[in-house]
Structures are given as C-alpha cells and as structure tokens.
Design a protein around this nucleic acid. Structure first.
Lengths: 339, 339
DNA sequence: AACCTCTTTGCAAGGGTATGCAAAACCTAA
DNA sequence: TTAGGTTTTGCATACCCTTGCAAAGAGGTT
C-alpha cells in the first residue's frame, strides 16, 4: 500500500507518452503544450514527484549546500541560519546542516567529510575551522567553499566577514574618546582568525592614542570563559573602566557578572562594548553598545559568491568585507560628538 | 583535473577484483580478509568514497532526516537543533533543514513538499504545522513523521511534547499559593495545540482555586506581540499582580516592558512565570521562574521514536509527554513550602 | 505539391552503486 | 581422495532519471 513509488514510467504510461517526455516536462526542457498538459494531469492523478536523487546522480548537481556551523548559542548564528535558509530556498537550493559543537577536531572533520559523500554542490563554513586535508578534498572534488565570519590561514579560500580590524579599531577610538583610561579586552578565541583580527584592530586603535590594553583575557567565545575572565580581571585594582568584548554572546555574560556578581554599574563604573549586534544586544535589560555585523548583507554576499562559484566553476574565490558600524546604546559612555 | 569522480569500478580495477566486491566492502557486507585489504588499499590510494546518492537510489533509504523548524528566535530551538544534530549524527543520519519562518502557509507547505522529493527517511516537524495534504503525502510515501513540541488535530500523528496541561496547571497553583489575586495570562499562539493545551491547563489550575484569568492576550510566540499585549494589559487598573507567559521567548520581552517601559518591579509588583527554560531564562538579568522543557530528553525521545518507525515500518506512532518541572528563580514570589 | 526549417518526440545509453543468483573457492570430515 | 557444507566472488540486472541523437511532425514558402 504505502511506499510504492510512482515513477516517471508510470506517468508516461498513463499519459500515453514516452518516459523522456515526462522527464522533459518536469525538468523544464521544451515540450509542446499538449504534452505538458497530458503529463501534468497524469502526474497529478498519480501523485508523481520526480526523484531528486536520481536526477542528481545524472546531472552531477544535487542542489544541496552543506552548511557547517560551530555552535548556535550565539544568537547571531541562528539568525544567519534563517537567512541562509530563506535565500538558498529562493534560489532552489536546500541545506544539509551539520553542527560541530561538542565534537573533537577529528570527529568534526570526519563528519564534515561525510558532507562530500552527499555530493553537495557547495559548502558554507560558518565560524568553524577547516582542516587542510578537508579543503584539499573539496578542491579535488571541485566543491566550492565559502567561509562565513571566519578567516583561514590558506589565503586562497573565499571568505565573507565584517571589517573586523577597522571596526575594532573604531571601538578603541570610541572608548578612548569617552575618557576611559583603563581599557580592558576580553578577546574572542585567539585561535580563530576573527579573534586575532579584532584583537589587532583594537590594539591598533589604542596605540593611536598611545595606550595599550589594561588587561587581556581569552573568552573562547563562551559565556563561561568570558565570565571567568571577567572575575579574574576585576579581582585586581585599579579596576578597568571599560571592556571591549570579542562578541555579544560573551558581552552579555560580562554584563551579568559585572552587575550581579560584582555590583558594578554599567556604564557608571565600567563601559562595555560588544561585537555582532545579535538580537539580545538590543533588549532593554542589556542595551549593549556594539559593532553591528550586518548579517543580512553578509549572508547575501556569501550566497551570491558561493552560487557564483557553483554555477560557473572557475570563478575565483574572493574575500568580502562588509562594513560593521558601531551601534551606540546604553552600556558605554558616549563621548561628545559621537552621538 | 578537478571533478573527476573516482568510482567503485576504478577501485575494482586497481584492486583486481569485481565492482561488487568493492561495493560489499563499503556497505559492510561479507568479504574475505584478503579482499577487504586489497580494496581498502586501492580505495585509499585513489581517494575513493562511495556515492551516497547512487546508494540511496537503490536501497531506497537516504539516511537523511528532514527537519522543519518554525523559527529560531526562541533559544529553545537552536538548542534542540544542536541536540538533534548530535544524536542523528551518532546514529548515522544527516539533517536536511528547512526553516518555515517568513513564508506564508502555502509557500511553506510547498517547500516542505520538496523535502519529500529528496527521499528523506523521516521528518521531524518542530513547532510547525502540517497541512492535511502534506501528512497524507507522507503517509502515502511511507515516510514517518514526528511532531516535536507541537500537537496536531490528526490524533494519529506521532508527537513529543512536555506535559503542557499539567505543567501549566502547576504554574497556576504556584501563583495562587503565592497569594496573587489578579493573575493574567499571555498565551502562546492560540492557533497552536501547544498554546491551547497550556492555556487549558492554566485555566484548570486557576479554576481549582475558584479563580479565572484576570486578563488574557495572545502573544503569538513573538516578542513584539507579547510586548504589545503587555502594554495593553497594564494600561488598565487595577494592574495584574502576576503574569504567566506562554513561553520564555515572550516572557523576556514581557519582563523588559514591565521593568523598563512601565517602571514596575519584578517580582515586587508583578510576578512573571515563563515556559521552556531556554538558556536566557537563567541569565541573571532575567532570572526567570519557568517550566523546564527537558529538551535533551525530548529530543532523545523524538529521535528514538522516529528511527524506530524508519527502521521498522509498521511501528505505530506514539504520543510521548515528558514531564516539565517548575524551576523556581527570582521573577516570581515563592510561596511558603514551595522552596 | 515539393522543399526547407524548426520544433517535438521516442529510443537507448548512462550515471554509481546494491544485490539475487549461480559458479567458484575454501574447509572439514570421512 | 571424494563428498558435503560454508564462504566468497563475479555477472548481470535494477534503481529512476537525463540527454544526445535521429526520426517524425508541424508550419511556412515557392
């Protein structure tokens, strides 16, 4: 009863045409009005839908994009995921998703390898590292890869990021202009290019003013580490009077620790600035001053570039930087003239 | 150079065996030690990996599960998604994901239909409705479906939820015991079974004490609607002294409005209780008293049931309810003896 | 009516793998 | 050595669809 597949042959028989005719109607190739009509009717009556797997096997394109995401705790990524889904959807692609969180490096690379077995047409790696071995295999298989919000030592890889360096430098300028004298930095994971770039930009900004970070700590992009680092940083006097945090997800934890554990006032005692402008940053309880990563434009750029490479192999990978403006909210003192 | 596929035939030739031998080695069927060895070596040398599409075409199983998610704003879902990914991964399945947010009903059903074209082995519908037409098609195609955190009029569908009715009733008892007299309810979307069940349970709990909701409003599971409803509800005196909110995502917005727009103190002026125990509920800035939906156990139950049905068709769909305990935090006055 | 062009159609091959079947190889016991 | 049983192996077919090719049909012009 159930499970009996309706194939294009069944439709052909019922419509009184050849199987190729059915195929052509459904793959959009040319066919006469009359044939189209007959086939459509027969297909509807039988409930026929083409088998995408068989089609992919022949055409060599699956219309599936592999999406690898490091983690989803940081609201920036669920948001990006929604956008990826909508955009790829609109362009006729689907998403095979793989979350790397909680897997050790080896396991992650192994499972990402399985993506390739599904003949995905392209891969988006969001905030996740790629082993050299894996990038090589993608290369050999001719599968384009775009890094989203993450850099990579291999300079040839396509990537879309925000202006990490410039934006972080601007944060430094902003805090200096605000009269802060003891400016600390809770970095994103320093093993990531993103973390390094923001760190470098921030230091450059401080250096312009002849300053340097008052204190430093790696928050590893997790709430727990960021909270721990905050406690350590604020256990020594004189306390920092400003903190730049490597992303919003950590910044929220920092705010919570400052206010509820250490009883400090923000921005009275300490100014806090984040990076991402993830949704919770705008919630009144946090009201976080932060650098906006325009996820809409970043996702669009990623999809555009990837599909460009998918549909026209030989298109060279590019590196795209989207400007990330500073969004002024209530968690940091605003200098004269910055309003 | 790139894109040239290595097939099982190539491996066979190099290993000096037949193509079937190669197939058997990689599909785990029996083969002699010697053959296995030869094939493995040849495959490694050539960089061969089986083509999953071709395999699926024959076996009729793709090892892919379609996951449909309504939206990801509510942190409960990204969290669940991570768990789904890890669990299915571990059992050899992959996830084809589809986000329904921002699509009208027709478009959503259309795209979900496309899932079927990919020959998914099963479907998980997380917080999303399924048209009758679609469930029928899944039935006909013999594709098992499990609803996650959502009910459905069609009683035959498999579903995993928390104890919506019982837990919401307990919230009512808790608030009554706390001495609240004007208890309002900001419902989840009343078009959803989940919303209705929680609403019914809550009313039942109030009724036990001879009370009824002081005010009602549908928050539609969005921050914006919940905020709007809150403003309306608190524009008339006497004000509610407690609010039960249909999920945490909305409850956070309610807290923000109460505190930062209306200048009310929580729980001094108003007690607030949510539902889900999504991650932000535990953040000190919110510290939300809420019903915990044990997402770990819910996801496990969902995966177990689905794969059971996938791997042994004819297994009857079940309805599983996981107990959702009330987590006491700081957003609601705690009655004597409830500590 | 004959010719040419352009579109539509069916045939058949092919994409990479799994699997039933029968032949071959191996092993054990007499 | 032979008979009997158990594994292992290769052959050929099947899965469902796309597509190049050549034949057939439609339409227009002289």
């Amino acid at each position: 009863m159930a499970g009996k597949m309706v194939t294009s042959l069944d439709v052909a028989a019922r419509a009184g045409v050849s199987q190729s005719a059915v195929s052509r109607v459904f793959s959009g190739a040319s066919a006469s009005k009359a044939t189209k009509e007959k086939v459509r009717r027969a297909a509807d009556e039988l409930g026929y839908r083409p088998n995408v797997l068989a089609r992919s096997l022949i055409t060599g394109r699956s219309k599936v994009i592999g999406l690898v995401v490091g983690y989803l705790d940081n609201q920036f990524y669920p948001d990006a995921l929604e956008r990826f889904s909508r955009l790829l959807q609109k362009r006729g692609y689907h998403i095979l998703i793989f979350l790397a969180k909680g897997l050790d490096e080896a396991a992650a690379q192994e499972v990402m390898g399985e993506l390739l077995d599904y003949q995905v047409d392209g891969i988006i790696a969001a905030s996740v590292g790629l082993s050299d071995q894996l990038t090589r295999r993608c290369d050999e298989a001719g599968i384009p890869v775009v890094l989203f919000n993450r850099g990579h030592p291999d300079a040839r890889l396509a990537r879309v990021t925000s202006t990490n360096f410039a934006s972080a430098r601007k944060v430094a300028e902003f805090l200096v202009a605000g009269g802060h004298r003891r400016i600390a930095h809770i970095q994103g994971w320093m093993g990531s290019a993103t973390g390094q770039e923001r760190d470098a930009g921030f230091r450059a900004g401080l250096a312009e003013a002849g300053a340097e970070p008052w204190a430093l700590g790696d928050g590893m992009y997790t709430r727990e580490d960021a909270a721990r680092v905050t406690r350590e940083m604020f256990s020594q006097t004189p306390l920092p009077d400003a903190v730049f945090v490597g992303n919003d997800h950590m910044a929220l934890a920092v705010l919570d620790v400052l206010r509820f554990e250490l009883g400090l006032s923000v921005p009275g005692d300490v100014s806090v600035v984040g990076y991402d402008d993830a949704a919770p940053a705008a919630w009144p309880s946090y009201d976080l001053t932060t650098v906006r990563q325009p996820s809409g434009r970043m996702v669009e750029a990623t999809v555009d570039m990837l599909l460009e490479m998918v549909e026209d192999k030989g298109r060279a990978p590019r590196k795209i930087e989207i400007e990330g403006p500073l969004i002024l909210r209530g968690s940091a003192r605003v200098p004269e003239g910055w309003q």
